[in-house]
């Protein structure tokens, strides 16, 4: 674990240094990343130019959901976004070159082509989050103040697990890498809107099957002083760290199973 983090840090540092060597190019791609993620929020603004409420939620409330989902996803994307290329590495055989180095493969795949420009998504999410907080006039309790950063970090953990599990899936179905987008980008898009917008079955699905609801919906609804549509007990709002740890453990197991399968079949 420590060896993996050290190697991850080394590779990330090298890529960042080489990206910053071309400063103009870096700034432009970061700006593009920022704008591309901003487009989602633009869609929400367009909707609110026509209505005052969506699913019973005001613009600042939706912006709060957007900001928390966007920041959590952005953190996971920055740290592990490169993992979606695993299928390609299996196909062209370059994964083998990572297996002969004395550091964990997961760290190498995750850090490969680390793109600092993906920080644009985090910045954009945080800006929307800050804006929403200034407009919401919430009564912050000490608990809420703990809940907010915990939500962002746990959310990043849950999305990170999705990235790792998605990459593990590519050991078996390398060409199906786009399926991962449904759960990463699709999940992030879903969580930008209030759960009241969606069908109950869908909300149940992302609570109990694929626990994305723990990224922001459950804790954010508490901060916003709203009921969650499934009427779950209140303590569930504090479960995200546990859910994140469980997801990461499962994703880790999936990754090891995938790697074991690769090492026995070579494909």
């Amino acid at each position: 674990m420590a060896e993996g983090l050290r190697a991850y840090g080394l590779i990330v540092w090298m890529w960042t240094r080489s990206a910053l060597a071309y400063r103009a190019s870096f700034l432009m791609t970061a700006a593009v990343n920022f704008a591309a993620t901003g487009l989602d929020f633009l869609a929400i603004l367009l909707m609110f130019s026509q209505v005052d409420r969506l699913g019973g939620f005001s613009l600042p409330e939706v912006a709060f959901l957007y900001g928390t989902a966007g920041t959590a996803f952005g953190l996971a994307d920055l740290a592990l976004g490169s993992m979606e290329r695993l299928g390609g590495r299996v196909r062209d055989g370059t994964l083998d070159t990572l297996l002969v180095r004395p550091v964990p493969v997961l760290a190498q795949v995750a850090a490969d082509r680390f793109a600092l420009r993906r920080i644009g998504r985090i910045v954009q999410g945080l800006l929307v989050l800050v804006w929403s907080v200034t407009r919401l006039e919430l009564h912050w309790t000490a608990l809420d103040l703990v809940l907010l950063p915990m939500m962002l970090l746990s959310g990043a953990g849950i999305f990170g697990a999705v990235f790792v599990a998605g990459a593990a899936f590519q050991f078996w179905a390398g060409d199906a890498s786009e399926v991962q987008n449904s759960f990463t980008y699709g999940g992030a898009t879903l969580l930008q809107y209030p759960p009241s917008v969606f069908a109950k079955e869908l909300v149940r699905g992302v609570t109990f099957v694929m626990p994305l609801a723990f990224v922001n919906w459950l804790p954010a609804l508490r901060i916003l002083g709203r009921q969650d549509p499934l009427g779950l007990p209140g303590w569930v709002d504090f479960a995200p760290p546990l859910v994140a740890v469980a997801c990461c453990a499962l994703a880790g197991a999936a990754w090891r199973a995938g790697l074991r399968s690769y090492r026995s079949t070579g494909s």
Binding site: D96, L99, V100, R260, R263, S264, G266
Partner: peptide
């Protein structure tokens, strides 16, 4: 070679 390097089991 892949077995000798530990890539394949």
């Amino acid at each position: 070679v892949k077995m000798l390097t530990g890539i394949l089991t």
